[in-house]
């Protein structure tokens, strides 16, 4: 039994997707163990909300379950697929938030005693998070994908369904806005 589990664990993503298409929940669990941190990271940075980020990550993996029968082996891979799906899910949520007027996510007050250094780190972190949250949705996605996820411009442009030149222009504006905002808050000085 343990050898079977080890054999499954060593299978490629495409082989696991074939198992998922055959409705093997353990295979999805393994894919989640391997890749769930990708949609989690993207959603956490784009939405600045842990609960929503977990929802996005779970939805992305469940969409993988739904999409498994159409999966084509040898393509860009599960990681790229999850990056695309989670980025677009975040953009959907940001637009929905704006539509319902819930654009400001309340920050939770942390009442635990903290050392000065930790407080300062949290201040910087909070300022950066606020600056990223203040960017327009596509600019936010561009920064998260290229800076934090280290995706190439071409791939990020593809995820956002943009021409590469248009994406580079968007990224240029996003970087300038983010730099101005961070410097304006006095944390990058």
């Amino acid at each position: 039994m343990a050898t079977t589990a080890q054999a499954i664990a060593s299978e490629s993503d495409d082989a696991l997707m074939a198992r998922v298409a055959a409705r093997d929940a353990d295979a999805l669990r393994l894919l989640a163990d391997r890749h769930a941190d990708i949609p989690w990271r993207i959603a956490y940075r784009m939405l600045n909300d842990a609960a929503e980020a977990e929802d996005v990550a779970q939805d992305a993996l469940l969409r993988l379950w739904q999409y498994a029968e159409r999966w084509q082996a040898g393509g860009p891979g599960v990681a790229a697929w999850l990056t695309r799906v989670s980025t677009n899910a975040c953009l959907d949520r940001i637009r929905r938030r704006r539509f319902v007027g819930d654009d400001a996510v309340p920050e939770r007050a942390d009442e635990s005693p903290l050392a000065d250094e930790k407080i300062e780190q949290d201040d910087v972190r909070g300022a950066v998070a606020t600056c990223i949250e203040a960017l327009p949705d596509r600019q936010r996605a561009a920064i998260v994908l290229t800076y934090y996820e280290e995706r190439q411009n071409r791939m990020a442009a593809d995820i956002l369904a943009m021409q590469i030149k248009a994406f580079e222009s968007l990224l240029f504006r996003a970087r300038a806005s983010l730099r101005d905002c961070v410097e304006g808050k006095g944390v990058g000085a």
Binding site: L28, A32, Q58, L61, V124, R125, A127, V128, Y148, R175
Partner: peptide, 27 residues
């Protein structure tokens, strides 16, 4: 992409590990 002092600030935006029980809730 960014000057070093801005990059240093941006790098503070770390992401915590996946919440415990994520896989169980997914299942």
């Amino acid at each position: 992409a960014f000057p070093p002092h801005i990059a240093a600030a941006l790098d503070r935006l770390t992401v915590p590990p996946l919440p415990k029980g994520f896989g169980d809730r997914l299942a």
